[in-house]
Design a protein around this nucleic acid. Structure first.
Length: 769
RNA sequence: UCGGGGAUCGUCUAAUGGCAGGACCGCAGACUCUGAAUCUGCUCAUCUAGGUUCGAAUCCUAGUCCCCGAACCA
């Protein structure tokens, strides 16, 4: 396994491997071929293929083509190309959901035979209305209890094309009152008389995503089916399908795939939904899916972003379950970092300003060999003559104090060439149209004989040799960080996301072929457009500008920080939903035994919160009363019950625990009797929960008995202090936060059986001594 | 309204009861034939309130805020 940043998925996989749930890892990347892949998909691709690579497993590329009216073969090819370009290869051939239509159909027939599915003749509107909503349960379809034989005949007729679209659907028979709306008899198949890009006209019924996807995964032997957060609710249905179907051999699915969800990529200053991207393309607001302004993989590729940069980006942002909006600066950082390493340097002037060198011999051209990259041997010839073009913004008539460029009377170095000084400004109608200056003929190559250093170094091209070429300056597609935050995203489009300028480029660079990266010095990283460049007529795309610490901070207004709300007060509004405490109070009012217990616990000296919590269920009261009989110490019993047992048992009912209230009472008695320390008590409780047993006997078995051997404690303290000399020094110097580390270490040596408070005191005493 | 998730520097992400770490951004300095790169340093965070514990980002209780879910889409 190559080292890779751990995340919650690698933890799950490690645990699955360790527990033997799986013996190999199989993932998949399952796009629907209804649009181009974007940078969000790139994250998913890097995740799925990366996991397969790191665990020496496999990753399938699978087209999820279950809806023929939206999908297209052209998208299939584009997707394959993008995944390959990103640097990944799938196991075997490309898979298609449509390859499994026969299996899916057979599985549906089986569901019908099991009584787990039925044909519903309600209309779309009826189905929707009868599904209920978040507040109301649904109502059963009048067709829900059709005889199995009738369902079988009807489903066969659906397949045979005897019904027009929308006549009926196949539904799973789950529960119309299920709190998860997806489980209210989900649709499995719908009728669609449509031509499918692969199966042609073989089918006129097509499976729904929620039914098809788990079967696709299971059929391919996928172990970890990774998708995005919005599918969390779908997981329950995913599991239902796998629980109610079997593998082709008739056995339960093995390996049985599990679905896990991670946060999709949200990226600032762009939109990521396929619908919106499609709209930009169809409305011709961009020039196609591969427009370099688009966040599509195709667009970024054409712009000049490299696969390495994209993969670095995926690594940089990590994988988690937080909804997040990634700063686009992180992507830009990855792009710059990669291009910095790979791009040769050249010079071009975007907004030329002429500089006449009055002391340069008329008609003479010097040809300078300048390295493509600093420190490397390879050079290109760069002509230098009497008229030089510099960047307009590299000259100032009224320079600020720290100006490092050209101004009247000041000298700069023309990169790789000569020192020049500006003597005067040439104007026409008040406009600056050129500069006149002189060159230090002794500074050829950029070094002055007398060793003096100029104010700065600027880029330039020789006017008579410069090549005119189209330069496309790309910028962020939107002017705000969250264009789709509310309402229409189109008004936020950045009209300057593409600016075309005619640049003047040095001749050697202008001959670079299409698909080449170059850094135009002091301007940015550029890529010769692979589509529009022609031999001798290159078109250059700006991939990203250089980091510019001198430019005025454009100020990334921190819209998000402003949005952050103050923590709210607990709502006092009576109309709001009841809180848990109110709910329990009501329940007590209705149940005499709970109310009695509440009063009794109060009288026993338990505080109101504890008494409240303990009287939520009769079952709890019974358990607690039993514990009380075994060990009549309400406070400690309440503290261990509420703080530890409740957390450890999670949702497990008390009745399912391998011990009863009396045993719990005995357990707490051990703690109150100082027979065992608190951490050891927690260990013991965890053990009890897992396997039951007699607490008293387990103390010996597990070696958890309390040790009151102060000599052993002192020995352990000295051993730890000696083992961590640097930290011990800091601790002596008063770094209190290290105290915990030492207590922990000492406790570890003593196998948790010493009293932590005593260890702390002993440690403090030892340090004073 | 019901169900499912989530909350740690400005941003992304670690820490699985024991020193809140890394990266991006920002700031400062060094260096520089790119105001780039490189190098050094710095600023900056555990949603709130209680509780348990020697010790809580982590466990318990209560609350707040955010996201997802009611297509014959995926």
């Amino acid at each position: 396994m190559t080292t890779r940043r751990a995340n919650f998925l690698t933890e799950i996989i490690d645990a699955d491997l360790a527990a033997g749930r799986v013996t190999r890892i199989a993932t998949r990347f399952p796009p629907e071929p209804n649009g181009y892949l974007h940078v969000g998909h790139a994250k998913s691709i890097c995740l799925n293929f990366g996991l397969a690579r790191d665990y020496a497993g496999t990753c399938n590329l699978r087209m999820d083509d279950t809806n023929p009216v939206k999908e297209d073969i052209d998208y299939v090819h584009a997707i394959e190309k993008d995944v390959k370009w990103l640097g990944f290869d799938w196991a075997g051939s490309v898979r298609f959901a449509s390859d499994y239509f026969d299996h899916m159909y057979a599985a549906a027939e089986r569901l019908i035979a099991q009584g787990d599915a039925y044909v519903d003749h309600q209309t779309v509107d009826e189905i929707r209305a009868n599904r209920g909503d978040f507040g109301r349960p649904g109502v059963d379809s009048p067709y829900r209890n059709r005889p199995i034989a009738e369902n079988q005949a009807l489903f066969a007729a659906m397949r045979a094309g005897e019904f027009v679209d929308g006549t009926c659907v196949l539904r799973a028979k789950v529960d119309m009152a299920h709190p998860n709306l997806l489980m209210r008899d989900p649709l499995l198949y719908r009728i669609r008389h449509a031509h499918h890009h692969r199966t042609g006209d073989k089918w006129c019924i097509y499976p729904m995503y929620d039914y098809a996807h788990p079967l696709e995964d299971a059929l391919e032997g996928i172990t970890h089916s990774i998708c995005t957060l919005e599918f969390e609710s779908n997981r329950e249905l995913y599991d239902w399908v796998l629980d109610h179907t079997v593998a082709p051999k008739g056995t339960p699915w093995n390996p049985r795939p599990r679905q896990y969800e991670f946060a999709r990529l949200g990226l600032g200053y762009t939109v990521m939904s396929k619908r919106k991207l499609l709209q930009l393309v169809e409305d011709k607001r961009v020039n196609g899916w591969d427009d370099p302004r688009m966040p599509t993989i195709a667009g970024m590729r054409r712009r000049g972003v490299t696969p390495e940069a994209l993969r670095d980006f995926a690594e940089l942002i990590g994988v988690a379950k937080n909804n997040s909006l990634v700063d686009i600066g992180k992507l830009e950082f990855c792009v710059r970092q990669d291009l910095e390493r790979r791009a040769p340097r050249a010079m071009a002037v975007l907004q030329p300003l002429s500089l006449q060198l009055t002391n340069w011999p008329l008609g003479h051209t010097d040809t300078l060999p300048i390295a493509w990259k600093a420190g490397e041997a390879a050079t290109r010839p760069v002509p230098f003559g009497r008229e030089i073009l510099i960047e307009r913004e590299d000259f100032s008539e009224d320079p600020p104090r720290d100006w490092k460029r050209l101004s009247v009377g000041k000298e700069v170095r023309l990169f790789g060439a000569y020192f020049v000084r500006c003597d005067e400004v040439v104007r026409e109608n008040g406009e600056i149209v050129g500069l006149r200056g002189t060159v230090d003929l002794d500074s050829r190559g950029g070094e002055a004989k007398d060793g003096r250093q100029p104010a700065g170094t600027i880029h330039w091209v020789d006017a008579s040799h410069a090549v005119d070429c189209e330069i496309r300056l790309y910028d962020r597609l939107f002017t705000v960080e969250q264009p789709d935050a509310d309402g229409d995203f189109l008004p936020h489009m950045n009209p300057d996301a593409l600016q075309v300028v005619q640049g003047q480029m040095e001749p050697a660079a202008a001959e670079l072929a299409g698909g080449m990266h170059v850094q135009l010095m002091r301007v940015g990283y550029f890529f010769s457009d692979p589509v529009d460049s022609e031999p001798g007529k290159p078109v250059w795309n700006r991939v990203i500008g250089l980091r510019d610490t001198w430019a005025k901070p454009v100020g990334r207004t921190d819209s998000r920080a402003e949005r952050r709300k103050e923590p709210g007060e607990p709502r006092k509004d009576a109309a709001q939903k009841k809180n848990r405490a109110e709910w329990r109070a009501e329940k007590r009012a209705a149940t005499a035994e709970l109310a009695a217990a509440y009063g009794r616990y109060g009288a026993l000296g338990l505080d109101a919160d504890a008494a409240d919590l303990l009287t939520e269920e009769l079952e709890t009261v019974a358990f607690f009363d039993a514990a009380l009989r075994a060990h009549p110490h309400p406070q400690s019993l309440g503290r261990w019950f509420l703080n530890d047992l409740e957390g450890l048992r999670k949702a497990r009912p008390l009745a399912d625990l391998p011990f009863d209230g009396a045993v719990f009472g005995h357990f707490v008695a051990l703690l109150d009797g100082d027979r065992i320390t608190v951490p050891a008590g927690k260990q013991l409780l965890a053990h009890l929960l897992a396997q039951g047993g007699d607490p008293q006997a387990l103390i010996a078995t597990l070696g958890l008995g309390k040790v009151d051997d102060s000599a052993a404690v002192l020995a352990a303290i000295d051993a730890v202090l000696a083992a961590l000399p640097a930290e011990a020094e800091r601790l002596r110097a008063g770094e209190q936060r290290l105290l915990g580390v030492f207590i922990g270490q000492v406790l570890k040596q003593l196998r948790g059986s010493a009293d932590a408070g005593a260890v702390r005191q002993a440690l403090l005493d030892r340090l004073k001594a």
